[in-house]
Computed example of a mutant assay.
Amino acid sequence: METLLNDFSVGLFAMQAIVLLIVILLMRKFAWKPILDALQDREDGIQEALESADKAKLEMQNLKASNEKLLQDARMERDAMLKEARDMKAEMISTAKTEAQQQADAMISQAQEAIELEKKAAIAELKAQMAALSINIAEKVVREELSNKDKQMKLVESMLSETTLN
């Protein structure tokens, strides 16, 4: 340390101080300001990138919420369409059952009417045959009875005795 103090020169110190001040001024003018400006630009760019990232994040959240809402709406619409289809199916089945029951009732009614008409026709034909048969039998019996005079008298007397006058 002592050698440093012995070799110390005020002129050299002043010269070095002036050179140092000139280097600092030159650095400040030509290097320091551009470095600070570059750092400020970089900081501004980073800040803008962060703001853009925040905006993108918000936009993604909005898109996600919008997609969720669209998905929910689509599900609701699908459910409504399925419910409507089930209702239509049930209504069609009910209508078909009702129509089938009506047709069956109409067919049964027609069959009953046809049976009743056939029954009446059969009864009428049976009555007609019975009447014809009865007339034939009566005719044969009357001929037999009326062929003999004694039998005629007996018949008249038996009828008169069976008949009561009021």
Results as ranks from 00 to 15, higher is better:
108 I>L: 14
11 G>T: 07
22 I>T: 07
93 I>M: 06
144 E>D: 13
90 A>M: 07
20 L>H: 09
4 L>S: 05
104 A>W: 15
146 L>Q: 14
11 G>A: 08
102 Q>E: 15
164 T>E: 11
82 L>P: 00
110 Q>P: 09
79 D>Y: 05
61 Q>E: 15
72 Q>R: 10
30 F>D: 00
30 F>I: 00
37 D>N: 04
65 A>L: 11
18 I>S: 03
79 D>E: 14
94 S>E: 14
166 N>A: 06
91 E>G: 12
9 S>I: 04
151 K>T: 11
71 L>M: 08
44 D>F: 03
162 E>N: 04
45 G>W: 13
121 A>G: 06
23 V>R: 00
102 Q>W: 09
36 L>C: 01
75 R>F: 03
31 A>G: 11
153 M>G: 07
117 L>Y: 12
115 I>R: 15
136 N>D: 14
104 A>K: 15
107 M>Y: 09
26 L>S: 05
87 D>R: 05
142 V>E: 12
66 S>N: 13
84 E>F: 02
55 K>F: 08
11 G>F: 02
16 Q>E: 13
154 K>W: 07
41 D>G: 07
10 V>E: 04
43 E>H: 04
147 S>D: 02
67 N>E: 12
87 D>Q: 11
66 S>I: 11
130 M>R: 11
53 A>P: 02
49 A>H: 03
68 E>G: 04
148 N>H: 01
66 S>T: 14
146 L>G: 04
36 L>R: 07
14 A>F: 02
98 T>K: 13
109 S>M: 13
18 I>N: 04
160 L>P: 00
91 E>Y: 14
93 I>T: 02
114 A>T: 11
52 S>A: 14
154 K>Q: 12
21 L>R: 02
8 F>E: 00
16 Q>C: 04
140 K>H: 10
132 A>M: 10
1 M>F: 13
76 M>C: 05
152 Q>W: 11
105 D>T: 09
67 N>T: 12
124 A>P: 01
163 T>V: 06
75 R>A: 01
64 K>Q: 15
103 Q>M: 10
141 V>Q: 07
137 I>Y: 03
59 E>H: 02
116 E>M: 10
54 D>Y: 00
67 N>Q: 12
22 I>L: 09
123 I>S: 08
69 K>A: 06
18 I>L: 06
64 K>C: 10
17 A>I: 03
71 L>C: 04
29 K>R: 06
12 L>E: 15
161 S>V: 05
160 L>C: 03
128 A>Q: 12
31 A>L: 13
97 K>F: 06
134 S>K: 08
136 N>L: 08
62 N>V: 13
